[in-house]
């Protein structure tokens, strides 16, 4: 399970972030609560993603690619990095639109 979480953790955070944003916009449209909520959720998800990225990098440093979690951590790091950028990108409409 740990290996799968390292591998998919970044994208799971992205999914949680996206569906929370959808829920916020559905509940409050484009009003202030939706924008503030978007900001808070985005900040929390960015922090979660940064944590996963850090964990993946540290695991990859201490486990070679042949170990059970070595390769999933090596893949999980760029997944989390991509997710980090995607979450930030996804949150931008609350500031710009």
């Amino acid at each position: 399970m740990r290996a799968w979480l390292l591998l998919l953790g970044g994208m799971l955070v992205w999914a949680v972030h996206f569906f929370l944003l959808y829920a916020l916009a559905s509940l409050w449209g484009s009003a202030a609560p939706a924008r503030i909520g978007t900001g808070l959720v985005t900040a929390a998800c960015l922090a979660a993603n940064a944590g996963i990225l850090l964990l993946c990098v540290r695991t990859a440093k201490t486990h070679d690619a042949e170990t059970v979690i070595g390769w999933p951590a090596r893949l999980g790091a760029p997944v989390a990095a991509l997710s980090l950028v995607s979450v930030a990108w996804q949150g931008l409409p609350a500031l710009l639109v």
Binding site: F18, L21, Y22, L24, A25, S26, G29, S30, A34, R35, T38, L82, S86, W89, Q90, L92, P93, A94, L96, V97
Partner: peptide, 18 residues
């Protein structure tokens, strides 16, 4: 809602990256 449209537009552009 405009904000919803913004979110889906952003995701639609993001999916072209992979």
């Amino acid at each position: 809602p405009r904000l919803s449209i913004g979110f889906f537009s952003a995701a639609s552009m993001a999916v072209s990256v992979p």
